[in-house]
């Protein structure tokens, strides 16, 4: 079989492949599911054991988070927030507590609320709030995601806040390397806004505690920055694999639909236009997808 007839056999409807490109046959589809499943399991196994080789690139800095947050507030006509050492300490304690007790929630498994961390840090609040984020790749995407979520946006854009604190810490949560961002807002009791009725604002929380052993390992010297550059960025690599595969699949479906229509071939198979529409939707999902989560 020559190369051109082999390529035709693989990618074009032809009598040798029963008028259906070989790459779209059911056995080929089974192989794709198996190979992608294997890729998913093996890449995660390597990531968990050697995150510096195969992992997710992260570049989050408190300065950028503060600048992005204040830029959003100023654009809405609100005052800038001042970085407060005590709120940052409360945020750091909260993040360390989440790694130590292995939970992803506003309240700890033993019921510790964010307000207790704030009070313990010495910040006497009149109004306070907390936003959480994990596994985002950079500072801007964290703030953009908070702004896209109505509850987090309300917290971020609240006029009553004067101060803000951040902690960005890398560690192991639920057995996976995780970068946590804790953002705490407040106004001191006795300040103009703090004289209002004591108000505590968090967004809805979901407890996600497990019994796995905790492990905290700060990836930066302070708790204000996390920068990780693995040898191979799994986030980019995964997207690339998905884009290339779906691109080829769409091309084969498109050519197949055109040739089948043109040659008036009748066969038993799925609807190519529907397959194309479905995989275009999947492509949109993948391109708009962020790895990070909010709470």
């Amino acid at each position: 079989m020559s190369i051109s007839s082999f390529v035709t056999h693989l990618f074009l409807p032809h009598p040798t492949n029963n008028h259906r490109p070989k790459v779209l046959h059911l056995d080929a589809l089974c192989i794709y599911v198996f190979l992608f499943g294997l890729f998913y399991i093996s890449s995660h196994a390597v990531w968990r054991r050697m995150p510096d080789v195969l992992g997710y690139a992260t570049d989050i800095h408190v300065e950028r988070l503060l600048a992005e947050t204040n830029a959003k507030r100023e654009a809405a006509g609100l005052g800038s927030l001042q970085l407060d050492g005590q709120l940052s300490e409360a945020a750091r304690r909260k993040a360390v507590d989440m790694f130590t007790k292995n939970y992803w929630s506003h309240n700890s498994p033993i019921g510790t609320t964010p307000w207790e961390f704030i009070s313990e840090s010495g910040y006497a609040y009149g109004v306070a709030g907390e936003n959480l984020a994990k596994n985002f790749s950079d500072s801007k995407s964290v703030v953009d995601a908070w702004m896209a979520s109505p509850t987090h946006r309300d917290n971020l854009m609240k006029a009553g806040y004067r101060d803000i604190g951040f902690a960005v810490i890398n560690g192991i949560l639920n057995g996976e390397e995780t970068t946590l961002v804790v953002q705490m807002f407040g106004s001191r009791l006795g300040s103009k806004s703090g004289q209002q009725q004591v108000q505590k604002t968090t967004v809805s929380s979901v407890a996600a505690a497990t019994n796995q052993m905790p492990a905290v390992k700060a990836a930066s010297s302070a708790y204000g920055n996390v920068t990780r550059k693995p040898w191979l960025d799994l986030g980019i690599f995964n997207r690339l694999v998905a884009y290339v595969f779906i691109g080829v699949l769409l091309g084969v479906f498109g050519v197949d639909a055109w040739l089948i229509q043109r040659r008036r071939i009748v066969r038993v198979s799925g609807h190519n236009i529907a397959h194309i529409a479905f995989f275009v939707a999947i492509l949109i999902f993948i391109s708009s997808m962020q790895r990070g989560s909010l709470l």
Binding site: L26, L29, C30, Y32, V33, F36, G37, F39, Y40, S43, H44, N238, R239, V241, A242, F245, I246, V268, S269, G270, H275, F278, F279, I282, F285, I286, M289, R291
Partner: peptide
Amino acid sequence: AKVVIEYVLLGCIALVLLFIVIS
């Protein structure tokens, strides 16, 4: 049956790709 399996397999491929990217 071949058509049903085709849709199911394409759905599986899409889900595995989504989970690979979102993980």
